[in-house]
């Protein structure tokens, strides 16, 4: 009885051992893939945010130039290339008392479902009519 059991245990041992090794290797590959994907995702999102930040600052600058040209409110959309990535930027100018507020939005440059928003505000520090619109350039 005991010898029969031993005989049965030896059958297919090599195959089961190899299948076990394969299972272990596959699980380690899956773990590596998950870690690598999360790292790549993190890198893409960092790049996306960095590009969006630059695009939003460009939008704020264009808004300031628009204010300098006499625009006091409204929304404008334009396309700006951050490196080789085209970004559709929308800026809104508003004014409350002496404070100008600029709100710039841009959708994710790399196609994520994210919308980035930059807000900037400030007061005119010097009477604008003394220098004229060209003074901002």
């Amino acid at each position: 009885m005991a010898s029969n059991l031993k005989q049965a245990n030896n059958k297919g041992f090599a195959l089961i051992m190899v299948l076990g090794i394969i299972l272990f290797m596959t699980s380690s590959i899956v773990c590596t893939m998950v870690m690598m994907n999360s790292k790549m995702e993190d890198l893409r999102q960092t790049l996306d945010r960095t590009i969006a930040r630059s695009a939003c600052e460009a939008g704020a600058s264009m808004a300031v130039l628009a204010i300098g040209s006499g625009k006091s409110s409204g929304t404008t959309t334009f396309t700006y290339n951050v490196g080789n990535t085209p970004c559709k930027i929308t800026y809104t100018i508003s004014r409350a008392g002496g404070t100008w507020t600029v709100k710039v939005t841009t959708p994710s440059p790399m196609g994520f479902s994210t919308v980035y928003t930059l807000e900037a505000s400030g007061q005119r520090s010097f009477p604008f009519f003394i220098k004229g619109p060209g003074a901002l350039m």
């Binding site: 939003c56 600058s61 600029v102 928003t117 930059l118 007061q123 005119r124 220098k131 901002l136």
Partner: peptide, 15 residues
């Protein structure tokens, strides 16, 4: 370009 307005960036966020 911020010669006269002196805009200060107060917030940069994403949704």
């Amino acid at each position: 370009v911020n010669d006269q307005l002196r805009l200060t960036i107060s917030n940069f966020s994403w949704t």
